[in-house]
Every structure is written in C-alpha cells, then in structure tokens.
C-alpha cells in the first residue's frame, strides 16, 4: 500500500506478539522485506519471545505432590461445576415434563407444549449424559447418601431405594431453577451404571414411570407428588422400568406400559 511509510512500533509489537490475523501478518512481512533494520529487530524480539516461551514450558522439575493434589481437587470442582450446569437443565426438563402431564392447566404453569406432548427428548439426552458425566467423577471410597431438604414440601426429598442390587457410587447436589436437586450414580450387580436424578418439583403431579430411549440409552421418568425423578442407565429399557417401578412409591395402575418412545434431543 504505502511501502515508503515506516511500520509503526505498535504494528511491529502486535506482529511479534501474534495479535494479527493472517492478512495483517502478511502485510507486515511484505513491508519488512524492504526494511532490513526493522526486520532484524523483529527477529530479535521473536527470539526473546521464544526464549521466554521455552522457559514457561516448564517440564524440567517435577511438581510437588501437594500442588498436584490441589490441582486435582480443583479439576474435580470445575468438572462438577460443568456437569452441574448440564444436569440443571436435565432436572429442569424433568420437572417441566412432570408438570406437563397433569398440572399445567390446573396450576397455571408455563409449560413447553412441545415438551409436554413429546415428553422424552430434552431430559432423556441429559439424563443419559449424566451417567457419563458422573462416571467421570467416580473415585474410590465415595458413596455416602446425601439428604436433600424439600423446603416447599417440608422434610426431605425421598430418594427411592433402587434395591439391594444397586451399589451407590457417587452423589452430587444439583441446583435446579426450582431449588436443589440430587444426582446419584449406582453400579448394579451386573456391573451396569445407572443414574438417578431427584428434585422437588415446581408443582404437584403423580405420573407412573415412563420409559423412553434416546441415543440408545434407556431412561425412565416419574413424578411422585411434589418430587420429580429420572432414571437412566446402561441396562435394557425393560429392566430399567422394572427398577423404577420397584423404587417408585406405588401402587401403579396395572396395565401395559406405553411402548418406549424413540426421540432425539431437540434442545
């Protein structure tokens, strides 16, 4: 453009610090061809930067074990935070769906009509993902059940008993728009993992366990009065439904369950 004009220091600095996009870099390089002195200075700056960069890429000495332990704890918290946000959406969907079946007219709740008509998609994908997310955080020795207060109902959110076959691996509190929820990961006797999500719902409803399959992972939802639940795992849908029916406070109407609904997430 104007090759006679010297390149500004700001431009040179931005070039050395990698702040320019490709056309910007090319333009500076083209002009540097004509300015050997500036080019030499840039090369010097690049060398200094690279030496600093090499110094910063520290792999020489081992990191103190206490430091590594702190870093792992921090990673665990950040990972939990990332999955909490995912699960928050999952529980929100579960609550919404539970409300949608029975309550949206009576309770005047704003219910996503699509979610109410097709209760599977949003939650099923999230609940299925919860299995993997929680599994990532499994470490030996964890598994104390957590109690979750139900401020609107009073008392605690009852956590269904999945039976003697289910070994509790990990429990994690989960914020939901309606208040706290809880996610528990179990290992079944067969070795399969299932996750149970529980929360105090924003409305009162009673729905029987409803099976669905999303992305190949069976998921079952139900609401017991003010409490909403979702169960998902690596087991056949019929088995999962059986677990949910045994765990959910019945009695449930004895008729054939609706055929599992196939859905894909639409969120």
């Amino acid at each position: 453009m104007m090759p006679s004009e010297p390149i500004s220091d700001v431009d040179l600095q931005a070039y050395v610090d990698g702040q320019l996009d490709m056309p910007g870099r090319i333009e500076i390089e083209r002009r540097l061809q004509a300015e050997p002195e500036a080019a030499a200075r840039v090369m010097e700056e690049l060398r200094l930067r690279d030496e600093l960069r090499l110094f910063l890429a520290d792999e020489a000495e081992p990191i103190a074990p206490a430091t590594v332990a702190l870093a792992r704890e921090l990673s665990r918290r950040l990972r939990a935070r990332a999955s909490r946000l995912r699960l928050r959406r999952a529980i929100a969907a579960a609550v919404l769906i539970g409300a949608g079946w029975l309550a949206h007219a009576e309770f005047g709740l704003i219910v996503d009509q699509v979610a109410a008509a097709h209760p599977v998609p949003a939650l099923a994908a999230e609940a299925a993902a919860a299995v993997d997310l929680l599994r990532a955080g499994v470490s030996a020795g964890e598994g104390a059940p957590l109690r979750l207060a139900a401020p609107r109902t009073g008392g605690e959110v009852p956590i269904p008993n999945l039976g003697a076959d289910a070994h509790l691996l990990r429990v994690q509190p989960v914020p939901t728009p309606d208040g706290p929820g809880i996610a528990s990961l179990y290992r079944l006797g067969s070795g399969a993992l299932v996750s149970l999500l529980a929360a105090e719902a924003g409305s009162f409803a009673v729905t029987w366990p409803q099976p669905a399959t999303v992305n190949g992972r069976p998921t079952v939802f139900w609401q017991a009065g003010p409490f909403a639940y979702a169960l998902s795992g690596e087991v056949p849908g019929a088995e999962l439904l059986g677990i949910a029916r045994r765990a959910a406070p019945g009695p449930w109407p004895e008729f054939d369950s609706p055929s599992p609904t196939e859905g894909t997430p639409h969120g």
Binding site: A57, E59, T67, A71, R72, S75, R79, R81
Partner: peptide, 16 residues
C-alpha cells in the same frame, strides 16, 4: 485437554 483439567497448566503456572 478438557477445559476443566488443571494439571496440564501447572508447568506454566509455576514458571509464571
């Protein structure tokens, strides 16, 4: 790396 994984950053953090 996973965005929440802190360990890979320890070297740079220590040098800084």
């Amino acid at each position: 790396t996973a965005p929440f994984d802190v360990e890979p950053h320890l070297g740079v953090l220590r040098r800084y």
